[in-house]
Simulated scan of single mutants.
Amino acid sequence: MLLRKDRIFYLDEIRALAILLVLLAHTIKNFPVNINYLTSPTLLSYLTISRMGVPLFFMLSGALLIGKDYSLSEFFKKRFARVLIPAIFWYIILFVSVAYVNGFNFDLINVWIYDAPVPWFVCAIIGVYLVMPIFSSFVKEYGTRGAGYFLLIWLVLVILTNLNLAQDYYPTLIFGNFGINIGYAVLGYYLANKDFNIYSLPMVIFSLIIFIVCIAFNMYYAYYFKTVVYIESISIIIQCSALFIILRYLSKYATFNPSKTLSKIHNYIKDSWIGAIIYALSIYSYTIYLMHYHIVNLLIQYYPIRTFDLVPVVFILLTVISLAIAFILSKIPVLNKLIGIH
């Protein structure tokens, strides 16, 4: 598989990592079938790492869409079609699968309309897209300084929410399910466009230290307090930001210092079969997200996880099967426009 020359590799790296983290999270949530994962400090600590998956997706949306030139009609037509058509397609596939297994009847239709789960991420990304043109116009007017101003306000609200001081002052539900997501989108734009005037390698090293510290803190907190660290946490925001900067500045370092050992390793990964897999995970990420619910349920049903050692096995199986199915479907002329390839 040849990499597309017009793509930004570090953004593909982030998207590939994001979908892997989502798959890991949903593997852990099904571990094991006879034990609630909330009672396992070890699983909670690993689940905390996977919390970066969804925020990274929103950050990518902001990095790629905010500040760009487009008409409102063009934006909504293209964005909503790319989100809704695949979601409806896979929703129908799930309905047919359930009907085939359980038998079709009219009660099934009634239950499906009221109780069938629509992936929350689909609803969340639609909410972000609805207001993204407003933020895009604001950013085009004020640039990264304007984005920084918004992020300052956003972080204050996040801190107040973390401290439970803002419940009486604004609707927590609205901010928790919408404000946090648009904040991550603006953060993605800011980190993709802000020039920090620091040499690439020191920036990578500094961000890596911050990233490791946040990982350690979040795992420690989850392990000892038996609490999931949510994406509204300041530590998750810092953790995602550090990872974003690491990959961006590592790519920048490799571009301007091609003879360095670190650059050679980076460029080998980019141009080898590893880079091809990263690219595949990136372009099939939305397809994998929408279909993996069906696959993980089948895996757990026929290959139940009963020991912690099997979590990596199921995770790898889920990833390989999802990627293989997405690849096969992408080669079918009609389906390749319906399944959600980006």
Rank of each mutant, 00 (worst) to 15 (best):
I8R: 05
L11W: 00
L11K: 00
L11N: 00
L11V: 00
D12L: 08
I14S: 01
L17P: 05
L20D: 12
N30V: 04
L38P: 01
T39W: 00
S40M: 03
P41F: 09
T42P: 01
M52D: 05
M52T: 03
A63G: 13
Y70A: 10
S73D: 08
E74K: 13
F75I: 13
F76L: 15
V83D: 12
I88T: 07
F89E: 00
Y91F: 15
I93H: 02
I93S: 06
L94S: 15
Y100V: 15
F106L: 07
D107F: 11
L108P: 03
V111P: 06
F121P: 01
P133K: 10
V139H: 04
G146K: 11
L151V: 05
V156P: 07
V158L: 11
D168S: 15
Y169W: 03
P171A: 13
G179S: 08
I180N: 12
N181G: 01
G183N: 15
A185N: 10
G188F: 07
A192D: 10
N197G: 12
S200P: 04
L201P: 00
V204H: 09
I210R: 06
A216E: 10
F217Y: 11
M219I: 07
M219V: 07
Y221G: 01
F225L: 03
V228P: 02
S233T: 07
I234D: 11
L243N: 09
L243A: 01
F244Q: 09
N257G: 10
N257P: 09
N257A: 04
K260N: 09
T261D: 10
L262N: 02
K264H: 06
I269M: 06
D271F: 02
S272L: 01
I277R: 03
I277K: 02
I283Q: 04
Y284C: 14
S285R: 12
T287L: 06
I288S: 14
Y293E: 10
I295S: 13
R306I: 10
F308T: 04
V314E: 06
V320L: 13
F327E: 11
L335P: 00
N336T: 07
